[in-house]
């Protein structure tokens, strides 16, 4: 088979593209493919993680809450209006690009993020490294959460002595934290 591009060399690369069930085939030779840049590493690639992401989000929209909201409750779908106050990115722009515009987008779009993050990472809450300088408070807050869980557990198990100790520890951290907040 000859190359569809130059018609001179024999085609060694065969692509099949399927879009909405419609199949297109390309047969080109290697040098034409290279001239088109498709085999050069680092060249912009037709398909990237961002395409995949926006695929996930589209799925989320057509399948999920927006139809429910507009259909069942008679409310106008929210993502048209949802916009980040800080950088101006709208949710539908985000879902097209697969990328946020600024750190505030995470807050602005918070109500829509859990399902997306769950699908990408299987989790929604960070447990890794914390910035040292601004992180001391956060570290203590994490301790606090862990202690409260322990407290609940010891109450359920009727270990009241341990519970009392935990309660004192929790109070101390809470006082420390509010003290620091005042100092600031």
């Amino acid at each position: 088979m000859m190359c569809q591009q130059c018609g001179q060399k024999s085609a060694t690369l065969h692509f099949t593209k399927i879009i909405n069930g419609e199949k297109t085939e390309f047969h080109i030779c290697e040098s034409c493919a290279r001239d088109k840049g498709e085999l050069i590493p680092g060249a912009p690639n037709g398909f990237s993680i961002h395409n995949l992401l926006s695929g996930l989000l589209d799925f989320d929209m057509t399948n999920g809450s927006s139809q429910l909201q507009s259909g069942l409750y008679g409310i106008k779908s929210t993502q048209e209006v949802m916009r980040c106050d800080h950088c101006g990115l709208t949710f539908s722009q985000f879902s097209k690009m697969g990328r946020f515009g600024c750190d505030a987008c995470y807050k602005s779009f918070a109500s829509r993020l859990d399902p997306l993050l769950k699908r990408v990472h299987g989790n929604i809450v960070h447990v890794g490294k914390i910035p040292k300088r601004n992180g001391i408070v956060m570290q203590r807050k994490r301790e606090l959460i862990a202690l409260r869980e322990k407290l609940q557990l010891s109450i359920q198990q009727e270990q009241f002595e341990t519970a009392a100790q935990l309660r004192d520890e929790i109070r101390k951290i809470e006082q420390d934290l509010s003290g620091e907040a005042e100092a600031k």
């Binding site: 993680i49 961002h50 992401l53 697969g98 990328r99 946020f100 750190d103 995470y106 807050k107 993020l113 997306l116 993050l117 990408v120 990472h121 989790n123 929604i124 809450v125 960070h126 890794g128 490294k129 914390i130 910035p131 040292k132 300088r133 601004n134 992180g135 956060m138 807050k141």
Partner: peptide, 24 residues
């Protein structure tokens, strides 16, 4: 980190442009 303020959120961790990098 000692000299610039990072975009960091208690719940989501280090905030990144692409949601596939957020957290760590």
């Amino acid at each position: 980190e000692a000299q610039v303020d990072y975009a960091f959120d208690e719940k989501r961790g280090y905030l990144t442009s692409c949601p596939t990098n957020v957290g760590t």
